[in-house]
Every structure is written in C-alpha cells, then in structure tokens.
C-alpha cells in the first residue's frame, strides 16, 4: 500500500470514525512491518532450523536409543543407558582430560604471547607490516597444510628438528611417540597456527588507544613499562576478555590438528573428546552413544562459557563502580 492511498483514506474519513481507522491502520502497518522483517529473516531462519535446531533436537532423541548408522536402532529404546555407559567409560574421561589439559596449557600462552607480539609490532619499528604479516600468515593456512608441515618438522631421524639435533651430536626428541611430548608438540603447532588471530585482535585494540594518553603519561614521567602496565593493558581489558572467551571455546574443540598429526596417539594420549565422539560415531557407527557424549560435552562447554561471561561482566561492573 502506498502513502498516497493512506493520505486519501485519512482525508475522506469522518471525524467519528477517524480514531478507529487510525488504530486499525497502525495495527495493519505494524503487522506489515513485522511480516517484512520475518520475510527478510526467513531464508536464514529456514537453514538455521533445518541444519542446526532440528539436528540438535534429533540428536538429543538419538542419545536415548541404540542408534546405529543404518538407523536400525531407532526402535531400540535404551532410556538412560547411553548416559550410564558414559559415566563408567574410562576412554571418555581420559579424552575429556586430554581436552582440558590442552585448554589449560594452551590458552594462557596463546593470550600472553599474542599480547607480547602485538606490543612489539605496535611500536614504530621498520618493516612493521612485514612482521604483522609474518605473525598472522600461519592463521590463514588450512589445518591439513599446517599438520603436514609439522609432521615433517617432528619426523624422527631426519626431520627438521631431530635431524639437526643428531647432526649436533645431541639425542633426538620423541615428538610424536612419547605421550607427554606429543601433547607439547600439539600445543606448539596450535600456537604457531592460531596465535596470529589473537595478535591481530590485540593490535586492533592497541591502535584504538588515543596517542594523547601516552603523551600525557610520558609528561607525567611514566616509562615504557609503566605505560604498558598502567595504560595499555587496562585499556585492552575488553579485548582480553573477548580473546580469552573465544580461545577457551576454540581450545575445548580440539580435534582436527590431533586427528591429522597424531591420530590421537600414542596410545590415545592426544585423543580429545571430539575425536572420541568422532571415532564412536563414524568408525564404530554407534550414533546413539556418540550423541549422548556430545550432549554431556555440550553442557560442559556451556557451563564454562557462561561462568566466564559471568566473571567478566562482574569484573567490568566492579571496574565501572570504582
């Protein structure tokens, strides 16, 4: 309906019916606006429902059945048996431990190192753009390429590191065959690969800080370290909390790099929860049990993420009140 007809309507309306008409047209207008909004959202909404909401509901249902890949178990209702099995499944808890250890070790390094690199690059140094590129470049590589590069670096005997060590007369490091060192090898790879993202976020944050603040601080006699300690880091607080939350969630989802680099070995010492879920669902074809594990893990991630948000928002409230 065009504006013209609306105007005509208003002009020809009698004074008594005018108010009623206004209410009606307003209602119709709102309804139309709502409809337009929904129509714009519709294409995404459909995809969202078909590929996310529905599978989430369907998967939850599967977790109560002895569901196999052919769907034959859909008639075999198990109740909570899958969840009970999970409670006593050592392999699940071991995989959860692997994921948590990886997260606890890798997250602080990925945050602090990114901050350090950003501080270095943010100074007026020659070839700043070159360093920025070097630190960020690995992030754009696909995971398959990253693991291929590192599997040859970690190669025993003639790999880049072990080859050099033997040539220097030193003993080799068992990068991928010693359970403890394999985890370190995965963490090193992950840092090299993903620190660039946090680095860029920090760099963007630093470039938003007004130079006048540093100038004023310098006049007040603050040295380089004092400026970083009392100016840069506090002003980056919002960025830090964003990076930490994103990083924790990303680290908890550890899968592809270990799947490709170590296949979860040696002896499952680097098999993450998601890898175990994948093995159960797609190698052993036990979709029901894999779904049950997914839901337990989903709840764990949810709890971690929500408590982080709560912590961060309380801190920022405290910051404002002070």
């Amino acid at each position: 309906m065009s504006e013209m007809s609306l105007k005509e309507e208003l002009q020809t309306a009698t004074s008594t019916s005018r108010n009623q008409d206004l209410v009606r047209t307003n209602n119709r207008k709102r309804w139309r606006t709502d409809l337009t909004g929904w129509l714009f959202v519709l294409p995404f909404l459909l995809i969202f429902i078909i590929f996310l909401v529905w599978p989430v509901i369907f998967g939850f249902r599967m977790s109560f059945f002895n569901w196999t890949i052919g769907g034959n178990g859909s008639s075999h209702f198990l109740g909570l048996a899958n969840y009970q099995e999970l409670m006593g499944d050592g392999a699940f808890w071991k995989a959860l431990g692997v994921t948590l250890i990886f997260t606890v070790i890798s997250t602080p390094i990925l945050v602090v190192l990114a901050l350090g690199l950003a501080l270095l690059v943010n100074r007026a140094i020659p070839a700043q753009a070159l360093f920025r590129t070097i630190f960020f470049a690995p992030f754009i590589l696909p995971v398959s390429v990253v693991t291929l590069i590192w599997s040859w670096i970690y190669q025993p005997g003639f790999g880049l590191i072990d080859g050099t060590l033997t040539n220097l007369g030193l003993s080799e490091i068992q990068w991928l065959t010693d359970p403890t060192i394999a985890m370190i090898a995965v963490i090193i790879l992950t840092i090299w690969w993903t620190v660039g993202f946090n680095f860029v976020v920090y760099l963007a944050g630093m470039q938003q800080i007004s130079p006048e603040l540093y100038e004023a601080a310098s006049i007040d006699g603050a040295g380089t370290w004092a400026r970083i300690r009392y100016l840069t880091i506090p002003l980056l607080n919002r960025f830090t909390s964003l990076i930490v939350i994103l990083q924790v969630i990303a680290s908890l989802q550890l899968f592809t790099q270990t799947y490709l680099l170590t296949s979860g070995g040696p002896n499952y010492s680097t098999r993450s929860v998601i890898h175990y879920i994948y093995d159960t669902g797609f190698t052993s074809f036990r979709l029901g049990y894999a779904s049950a594990m997914s839901y337990v893990f989903f709840v764990i991630i949810l709890v971690v993420a929500v408590s982080q948000f709560a912590l961060v928002s309380r801190q920022s409230r405290k910051g404002r009140n002070a």
């Binding site: 065959t177 010693d178 359970p179 070995g265 040696p266 002896n267 190698t283």
Partner: peptide, 21 residues
C-alpha cells in the same frame, strides 16, 4: 580395514615398539 579393532591394536602395540609397555 580402518576399523576400531585395527586402531586399538595400533595403539597398544606401538607401546611395545617404543618400550612404553
């Protein structure tokens, strides 16, 4: 081939080669 049995065997027997088990 490529099954859970082969995966489990690989995980256990690797330890024999390295002396971990």
């Amino acid at each position: 081939s490529g099954s859970e049995l082969e995966n489990q065997a690989g995980a256990a027997f690797q330890g024999v080669f390295t002396g971990a088990m």
